[in-house]
Design a protein around this nucleic acid. Structure first.
Ligand SMILES: [Zn+2]
Ligand SMILES: [Zn+2]
Ligand SMILES: [Zn+2]
Ligand SMILES: [Zn+2]
Lengths: 145, 145
DNA sequence: CGGATAATGTTATTATATAACGTTTAAGGC
DNA sequence: GCCTTAAACGTTATATAATAACATTATCCG
């Protein structure tokens, strides 16, 4: 149960550290209100939605947290801060997500935008489906139908 | 100001037609509440959020409307129904969007997912930046600084 | 017609996010 | 240290987005 380590300890405030720690401890994305409801968070003294959102904003600025648009939820970035496009695989069964690198594809996508005269700031890719575990479970269910 | 035409007239209900017509008449994505506030919509007798959401759900089922996750808004599909991934360029200045085809890139993205054992159902790409008009306006502003 | 299915109407409620404003804390210059 | 300033925080209220629950009506098919 490491408290804020290495690069995080440098510039994170108490609230930011608490929120980041909550996301690290979760096995899937959490909404702001999910975070707000965690006992650890309440005990740390965070008790208003705005407090959570403010911490999340700063964490996203620093690239430590990503927002999953299609879930209105937030997840810790396990890739270390990066500037390339964020890509997520989202399991519609269990809600878990997996972040993937898109270095190469990003160029292709941004190129498509430039063709249209668009100046791209950020690229977000979200793919919905079933994770390996849930796909296996589903296959098992259909065999025993 | 054509009322529901061609393929739409076939299976759209009154509410669905009204909502689709509203989206077609807009020059950018509209939220459900934006739609609800339109005089044409009120006059057509639609007056509850749920009415709008139900119509939008059906329109999305039919591929006539897309949801822009990062705006919580909806936009008419001007590509005709399609099964490939949806990609959107979103102007953070004026709010307008442009739909782009991603046929080729989709395979690449889905392949990246399969590497991870993920079974992909849907791919969504949203790119934020500035549209040609707004980029030009910004350039003009900076010259006259 | 009669029965099933899909769509709608209505009200209330839940979920997500921000506004406004004052106070406290942290950081840096002198 | 002390002053200045900017950032972060606390608190309350409010705005925005989406769904639940349940009764009613339209549509389709045999
Ligand atoms: Zn990341
Ligand atoms: Zn899963
Ligand atoms: Zn489309
Ligand atoms: Zn623009």
């Amino acid at each position: 149960m490491a408290e804020p380590t290495a690069n995080e300890g440098q510039s994170l405030t108490r609230n930011q550290g608490a929120v980041l720690s909550a996301l690290k401890g979760a096995d899937k994305p959490l909404t702001a209100y999910d975070i707000l409801g965690l006992p650890k968070i309440r005990k740390a003294g965070l008790k208003a939605p705005l407090t959570i959102y403010r911490a999340l904003d700063k964490l996203m600025d620093q690239g430590l947290v990503h927002r999953i648009e299609s879930l209105n939820a937030f997840v810790h970035c396990d890739h270390g801060p990066h500037d390339h496009a964020t890509g997520f695989l989202i399991c519609s069964d269990c809600g878990r997500t997996l972040e993937v690198h898109l270095d190469d594809c990003e160029d292709h996508l941004a190129g498509r935008a430039r063709e249209q005269g668009f100046a791209v700031d950020a690229v977000k890719v979200e793919m919905t489906g079933r994770c390996p575990d849930c796909a296996a479970a589903e296959a098992a269910r259909s065999r025993t139908s």
